[in-house]
Simulated scan of single mutants.
Amino acid sequence: MEQQPSAVRLLGPAEVRGLAERLEFRPTKKLGQNFVHDPNTVRRIVATAGIDSDDVVLEVGPGIGSLTLGLLGAAGAVTAVEIDSALADRLSATVTDHAPTLAERLRVINGDALRLSAAEFGGPERAPTALVANLPYNVAVPVVLRLLAELPSLRHGLVMVQAEVADRMAAEPGSRRYGAPSAKCAWYADVRRAGSVSRNVFWPVPNVDSGLVAFTRHEPPAEIDRDRVFAVVEAAFAQRRKTLRSALSGWAGSSERAERLLRAAGIDPAARGEQLHITEFAALAGIAETET
């Protein structure tokens, strides 16, 4: 009989600190190491992620293993990528101690999620279908974007990030939070805010609150090279206070050509980047491509 999340012995505050002490481990700000020590928060994340026994979950930055244990109780398998070798070496033993019947579901990779290839994440036989992770604040957006690009098998996910970053990732056009991360995420998936998380459920306590961001992959909005589209996005937001006619002058080669391309795409040259949907950025990139 499959073990359920509620039957897994999750880690509490004393256990998280005890594991760290045995490892003589001190969390570092450089790696964004803030570990969840509240079992109810772990249960909430697992439930909100909507994973089931058909999912192979990719967890980036498992740390002590708090979330890992919750994920193992719900998913068919978990691939945990941990950059800190001491934590990576200990994770399997922690799972064996707290959920021995689920230990075989876990694969641990000691590496950097920003550098691993698709094959290293598991290959076709263990391709990740869901991303669920408490991501280091300083690399959250690059990690999500790279994994969506590198792993087409990822169908959905839920990540915990700094609240402000969560707002930016899920922002809609016209919002003051909308920017390059919002537009790039929208290329890959439907993205939404899925709740807030208090700083008090972490050890050590960060100086900001966190937010949950859920995504569901969709087909790209246009049949055009993604990098061409992202180049337009980056140019538009590099000087976000400027009109698109001015902001895109370097990308287009001149303000005059930028205006011509914008008008051809049905976009007001006096508009600003935060007003454009990803489909409009794609249309603009497509028109520019036909001129080259």
Rank of each mutant, 00 (worst) to 15 (best):
E234W: 09
N200R: 12
A186Q: 01
A149F: 03
N138D: 15
V159G: 06
V42T: 04
E82P: 03
E15I: 01
G61L: 08
L114K: 08
T96H: 04
A258M: 07
D225L: 05
E21S: 15
N207M: 09
V78L: 07
V81C: 14
E120Q: 14
R105V: 02
E291S: 13
F202W: 13
S117Y: 05
S182K: 04
T129N: 08
G63A: 11
P220A: 10
D55Q: 02
R26D: 12
I64S: 01
T48E: 15
L158P: 07
T96P: 00
M160H: 04
P142N: 08
R193P: 08
R155T: 10
G123S: 02
A171N: 06
G111L: 02
S6E: 13
K184Y: 10
G111V: 04
R199W: 10
L244F: 03
N40L: 11
H218G: 14
A130H: 12
I64C: 07
A14R: 15
V141A: 07
R22C: 01
R192N: 11
L106C: 07
L106F: 07
V191T: 10
T101A: 12
S182D: 10
G253A: 14
Q275Y: 00
L19A: 12
I278D: 06
N207D: 15
R90M: 13
P221K: 00
A214E: 13
N40D: 15
T290L: 06
R257P: 08
G76Y: 08
G211M: 11
A88T: 00
R241I: 09
G250V: 07
V191P: 04
T279Q: 14
S92R: 14
A270R: 13
F215K: 09
V36R: 01
Y178A: 05
G70K: 01
M1C: 01
V108Q: 05
A118R: 12
P13W: 03
L147T: 00
P62K: 02
S92L: 15
A49T: 11
R257S: 10
L67I: 02
P204E: 13
L148Y: 09
Y178H: 12
D89K: 15
Y178E: 07
L147Q: 11
D97P: 05
R260W: 06
P39G: 06
L71N: 01
V205A: 13
T79W: 04
R177W: 14
D97N: 14
A149V: 09
R228W: 08
R193K: 11
G211H: 08
L154N: 08
G18V: 01
Q162E: 15
L67E: 07
L212A: 02
G65D: 09
N207V: 11
R43F: 01
E164D: 15
P5C: 04
S246Y: 02
A14E: 15
I83L: 14
H277E: 15
L151S: 09
A183K: 02
L147C: 15
D227V: 11
Q275H: 08
N134E: 14
L154M: 12
A264H: 10
V141S: 13
S153R: 12
D55L: 01
S249W: 03
L31V: 05
S6G: 00
E59I: 03
S175V: 00
A118D: 12
V143E: 01
G61M: 10
P100C: 11
L244H: 02
R17P: 07
S117E: 12
G50Y: 09
K242Y: 00
H218W: 13
K242F: 08
A7V: 02
W203I: 06
L276H: 10
